[in-house]
Design a protein around this nucleic acid. Structure first.
Lengths: 357, 357
DNA sequence: TTTTAGCACTCACTTTACCCGAGTGCTAAC
DNA sequence: GTTAGCACTCGGGTAAAGTGAGTGCTAAAA
């Protein structure tokens, strides 16, 4: 019988914790000492495992649903797992190639791209996939067009450098002179190109006088056009595969289900929440650009017993949106991180192709 | 003792049926004879009610969940109720005025309009509200604009007479000459104005030669532009308040819930289904433009124990989309019909203002 | 002939009791 | 330090019993 050094002790503990997490992720049932002893080659008796497990419980890594049940990993355990133990998987080559082909093939329209992406995320994860496209606030203005539909109706089209297009029809009480429109368009394109939308609107409001010196009576008109066409929109939130969560044993009881539905129902809220949460400092780890938020790490009470794996996607080196998956805490983090990472790269590439060509 | 004429008999039966439906709509629990006798001034003993009810059951208007339970209205009963008994309510004046103000005030952007509308429907009904905006297939082309963003990237903007705008960026391998673009734009606007989108695309493909006689090498380019810019998009489906259904006693058991989630998860499908169903002949009734589909009247299995109250909304006298609510069969049809009718009018008006001014 | 009272019967639902077994914590032996 | 043994816990499943709303039927009353 050999005496274990402190290092060995800790190492064993870690391996055990890993085993528990693994098993729980697989089965969803609290894992007991005997089960563990037989399933994993730990060469220890159930009794010993019980001792170590109770230590782990004291340290806050495991918890007991009730006295006579096996152990369940806590948020802290998952966090430890993600940070220190987990190996980030790679997608199977086949899978990756198929995805790559799909993205190269038929991703033309930005909305389709986002929709398919959230579907893809859902399909790969078997959980809920989401994509958050922020409003244009952060995007930079690339091009402005003002198209007279009728004398009193103007179609304003704004194109951002991220390839997003926003349009807005503005109706006036009196006809808008074409010359005025031309001037305004020139002004807009000269002055505002490259500026962030939010800034552009303000600049525009200031500069609108320059043009209205010639068309004094049109001042208000220009103001209104600026105000309405540049009004902030809130961005889109795509959510797919919400149903898949309901088949999981994790969300079986009525209450759980109810709150889940409620959560998913409020898409808009959810989008805001996620984007806010993600905007903050990412819990660290070896996860490249991918963030993992486990259970109570999510500020929103609705997400308290879920995990979110997310990553921002990038155009021209700038992060412009967020995508990821929503699933039970008990998820295969290593695979999920790989999925989110891969998809976020693909989306970034596709957007790049759409805007830079 | 007076002998009842056949008319009186039938009248009584009808009143009874109405009472049962009413009570069931209110409580959601099978209604028994005693309950009915005490709650409604029918001046009949439970025993008599039982007799009449069993007749109604034979005729297919009522059903028994099990031998010793009260009666539950069948689809047929609801249908009869909607067609023959129900008084279409009016919204309370206050409610209506508030709605009116809201719609007049801040409905500028078409997408906002639709989103708010589905939210409004959900709020008024306490069930799920939906709005279906068809693709542009049916809309007529009003204006086409081709904007060069960069030499090799063209932004095509299509405006329909219903005020919808569709845009699409098309990238080419080689620069597109501005003159060519101008020609194409002129051609498009002259030839295609007023044509339905689907037709426009075909016409365009045919006529594209006319222009490419001058720019032979650009033929393929024009083709591609036409094909991609005019590609059919599928329309949007807005769905709000899905969660509210889950609090209803009607969908409490697991299986019910699961299938409901599944249904709502497939927004796209749902949109198609509804639009298909609604396109067909509306079950008649005194319900103005509002259609009511009860339970199995819906072809889609997922809707079998729900009811759909819907109405199309109109621009320039042409129905261009569909909106309504989705709820349990046991719903206050009279109010729901009023809600859907009112909202559909408001949307039609708002769209009218957006397009005609 | 229609309505009503009376009554036996049904059947979902609830409550209670019970058992089973996986799993623990502790103690004492290895 | 590790393990075997053992009493104990407690959720979950199942069966039995009780409850009550509601029915269908029959026979009497109107």
């Amino acid at each position: 019988m050999r005496i274990l050094s402190e290092f060995d002790q800790e190492d064993r503990k870690r391996k055990l914790l890993q085993a528990v997490i693994h098993e729980y992720i697989k089965t969803g049932k609290p894992v007991g000492s005997a089960h563990l002893a037989s399933g994993y080659r730990l060469d220890l008796s159930p009794a010993t495992l019980r001792n170590v497990m109770s230590e782990l419980e004291e340290e806050g890594f495991l918890s007991h649903p009730h006295t006579s049940a096996g152990r369940v990993p806590t948020d802290k355990a998952y966090r430890f797992y993600v940070d220190a133990i987990m190996d980030v998987q790679h997608l199977a080559r086949l899978e990756e190639e198929r995805l790559d082909r799909e993205y190269k093939a038929r991703m033309q329209e930005i909305q389709d791209l986002m929709l398919s992406t959230s579907k893809t995320l859902s399909a790969l994860s078997k959980y809920t996939g989401f994509v958050w496209t922020p409003g244009m606030e952060k995007a930079r203005l690339q091009h402005v067009e003002l198209i007279p539909l009728e004398p009193r109706r103007i179609l304003a089209v704004l194109v951002s450098d991220t390839g997003m297009v926003k349009h807005r029809i503005v109706s006036f009480d009196s006809p808008v002179p074409p010359a005025f429109l031309g001037d305004l368009r020139t002004l807009l394109n000269e002055d505002l190109r490259g500026k962030p939308f939010s800034e552009a609107r303000d600049t525009l409001m200031d500069h609108v006088d320059r043009i209205t010196q010639r068309h004094m009576d049109l001042m208000e008109m220009a103001r209104r056009l600026a105000r309405e066409a540049f009004s902030t929109n809130e961005g889109d939130f795509y959510l797919e595969g919400a149903g898949s969560l309901f088949s999981l044993p994790d969300f079986q009881n009525q209450e759980e289900m109810r709150s889940l539905v409620h959560l998913l129902d409020e898409k808009t809220h959810l989008g805001e929440m996620l984007s806010k949460e993600m905007g903050e400092t990412a819990p660290g780890g070896k996860s490249k650009g991918v963030m993992v938020r486990i259970g109570a790490e999510n500020k929103s009470p609705g997400l308290r017993n879920m995990s979110v794996v997310s990553s921002s996607y990038v155009v021209n080196g700038r992060p412009v949106g967020l995508l990821g998956i929503l699933g039970p805490k008990r998820m295969e983090y290593s695979r999920m991180v790989a999925v989110v990472d891969a998809v976020s790269r693909l989306v970034s590439q596709a957007l790049g192709r759409m805007t830079e060509k």
